[in-house]
Design a protein around this nucleic acid. Structure first.
Lengths: 362, 362
DNA sequence: GCTCAACCGGAAACCGTTTTCCCACATCCA
DNA sequence: TGGATGTGGGAAAACGGTTTCCGGTTGAGC
């Protein structure tokens, strides 16, 4: 098994040392950029040698002895869901600025994949992990944190806020704003399409809807809530169909994600239900397509990019603290305020395209 | 400079060996899964020890001696452009299936970032790279390939097809189909909004437009072509404005990317220009939002996911060939046929939403 | 009794760096 | 004269695994 294959000799630090007429140690000192005593003369010869041989230091070897990799893992649920690229963009931005490399992993929503991905990252000695996937259960996350790996949760958090850093948008306030926006526009039967309830943001959004409804007009009818098992366009369409088939259908719906909302819009289109005339829609996420003419989805901004940015900053902070021997700061929950992007799917008069505007129906 | 910080002792293979009462070599043999002779007894003791200590082998150390990392780099231009997540999804899918980990890098379109990213990946000893960024120049790619790293280009290729593997959609045929579709719908002044011409797909699409126009009705007016420097929504809107401000504006436009087309649609909406009545639009990419009711963008499918999948398969093939000592196959260019998704922005009667359908204007 | 193969396991070299010592030499100052 | 002190550079021990090579048992077959 596993023979040692003949592989073309790569240039090593030893080759550079030989060519420059110094020792490996000296080359390392110079290349490492530390403030060692090395003569200008030697420095120049080394630089020349590096140049001539096109020496590329082997980061694997360096990482082994340094016991750190300048790499962080980023695990997302599904790259196809537009929220995640946005979040990744934020993470990548600050990580790049801090000279970290990112190891990417997606779980496709399968919990067992998630454990695998994280384990593989651990074995690759990542310095930390941004967990933007949401299925891993409480215990597992705790164990992970307990194992000494720096972790920050993005776009989700645990019930106990003091266990691990997390950065989220204020889902409760957001859900409340969304529901109130619909109520304030005169709707009474405000339905809710809820995402998978084992995913905290979805649970919170649902909760906010429920509470707001109860406060404003008592417990809503049970059939006004539809739960879906995955946040996809098709699931959204199905859910919308269920609502529209009701004896007395709702006149408004708070949809827990933009992707689901797209399905809702599609279903309305199929059935000839006008939006917002026949059904007002407020969603959650604010992926960029929502602002397109012809879509103009009213939605709560989930601020994915900022969440990513802040999560990455937190992680970098933690990692460098550890390296510098500073005491670890207490884990904290960062909550970004939610804000409504009022657009056409629920009444925003002044933000309406001109009457003669783009009209795909013709 | 760089002190050696005291770091909590991690469990090593030595610890396992000691606890199991065998040597490191034996542990390695068992864990490596090779067909070595090791007694059942020893195997069990080792398994127990691994379990008890929760031993996680250090992949860095393994990679160092094995001189391979089971990791490939994936570099994209910009994660915010929805084409790339789609492509990544394809890459990730087959890479995951083949037990490769992916190192992610984005260049944000800056060529110098691109070299940096690739260099960093090389130093981290990736086994290969999927290059889906497009700015790196010809020479640089050649040097990269020459250096012994396995590379496959996704969604772009070099002029000389025998230098490096590449997987692309047929941009020329696609551009031709798009242009012909517009011409066939009776349009004569068919404009083109061209993406950055140093990016091969954009150059090819433009070329196809030009050739088709010349063939069908002679050289088009120079002002029917607008070039943008980046493929963004805003650039698309600007370009559309330029076209609509013309003395005799075009009645149709082939837009070289969906993202630009979204800008075009926005600008039309702002100006009250009906689509396709006032301006017919055919774009290129087929990102998922295009199919939404209210958008229904007619576009050429760039088949990003398949491109990603095929590119990754090619790369894995190459890498394993090298490992198994098989001779390297000749680089080849894989071209996926293009196909038109005829929707509402250029005449597809039977694919039109019902008249009373979703209407964001009210 | 001898040979040969199938078993089983350990010693040690190696992968390519970093970092710690330690040594050597010059200067400067008391 | 003899420490300090400031420079400059090398030897060698890590880091944590993998793989080669070799030596020792058995047991079967003759």
């Amino acid at each position: 098994m596993g023979k040692r294959f003949p592989v073309e000799r790569r240039v090593t630090i030893g080759d550079v040392a030989e060519l420059a007429g110094v020792s490996k140690a000296t080359v390392s000192k110079v290349l490492g950029g530390g403030d060692y005593y090395v003569s200008q003369d030697a420095r120049q010869r080394i630089a020349a040698a590096v140049d001539e041989l096109d020496f590329q230091p082997n980061a694997i070897a360096r990482d082994l002895v340094r016991r750190r990799t300048q790499t962080v893992g980023m695990v997302v649920a599904s790259i196809a869901n537009p929220v995640y690229p946005e979040l990744m963009a934020g993470v990548d931005e600050v990580l790049g600025r801090n000279d970290f490399t990112v190891l990417f992993g997606s779980t496709e929503g399968r919990p067992e994949r998630e454990s695998d991905v994280v384990r593989s990252m651990r074995q690759r000695q990542v310095d930390g992990v941004v967990l933007a996937s949401v299925t891993m259960d409480h215990d597992e996350v705790e164990k992970l944190v307990g194992s000494g790996l720096d972790v920050v949760l993005a776009s989700r958090h645990l019930h106990r806020a003091d266990l691990v850093d997390a950065v989220v948008v204020d889902n409760v306030a957001g859900g409340r704003i969304a529901t109130e926006h619909l109520l304030d526009h005169g709707h009474e039967r405000v339905a809710h399409i809820a995402g998978p309830q084992n995913v905290m943001p979805f649970a919170e959004r649902r909760h906010a809807w429920w509470d707001t409804m109860v406060e404003r007009q008592g417990q809503p009818d049970a059939d006004l809530e539809v739960r879906v098992t995955e946040s996809t366009v098709d699931a959204g369409a199905d859910a919308a169909a269920r609502l529209l088939d009701l004896g007395t259908p709702p006149t408004a719906v708070f949809v827990s994600s933009d992707r689901l909302a797209v399905g809702v819009l599609e279903e309305c289109s199929r059935r000839g239900v006008a939006v917002p005339g026949g059904l007002a829609v407020v969603a959650f996420d604010n992926i960029w397509v929502g602002r397109m003419p012809g879509v103009r989805l009213t939605t709560v901004d989930s601020r994915a990019r900022e969440v990513g940015r802040l999560a990455a900053e937190r992680l970098v902070q933690r990692i460098t603290d550890r390296w510098e021997g500073r005491p670890a700061t207490a884990p904290s929950l960062t909550t970004l305020p939610a804000r409504l992007m009022a657009r056409a799917t629920c009444g925003c008069a002044d933000d309406r395209p001109p009457p003669t505007g783009y009209d795909p129906a013709h």
